[in-house]
């Protein structure tokens, strides 16, 4: 199912992981080992963002941050973005992060 994300412009790779750290599947222009690393990184990053969002909500006393819906790290040429247990690597010049995030959300809901 996550393979369909590769059809989107700019998407170089996608991976799916479980909350216990298990790699589920990954596809794209990346060796298997790197897809595993991408999934591992995404899980760690998800937990970190979750922890920081919890604190922001706790200290700011405002709801609306948690639970976080996902995250995007934007570099000069490439971005990594994630929703739920899916992560994608996107070429900034070729794709739209808005579109990728929307599709990630939809695929994650299946």
């Amino acid at each position: 199912m996550i393979k369909r994300l590769l059809v989107l412009d700019g998407v170089m790779a996608v991976a799916k992981f479980r909350d216990d750290g298990e790699f589920v599947e990954g596809y794209g222009m990346m060796p298997d080992e790197e897809l595993h690393r991408l999934a591992h990184f995404a899980l760690d990053y998800k937990r970190m963002v979750q922890g920081n969002a919890d604190q922001l909500a706790m200290f700011g006393q405002i709801n609306g941050w948690t639970p976080p819906g996902g995250w995007i790290v934007r570099g000069p040429a490439m971005s990594v973005c994630s929703v739920s247990n899916l992560v994608a690597v996107v070429n900034n010049g070729e794709g739209s992060l808005t579109e990728v995030m929307r599709e990630l959300k939809e695929v994650a809901s299946y």
Partner: peptide, 10 residues
């Protein structure tokens, strides 16, 4: 720093 700010305020 974020934690210290939040902690002191709260």
């Amino acid at each position: 720093t974020m934690q210290a700010r939040g902690w002191e305020k709260l």
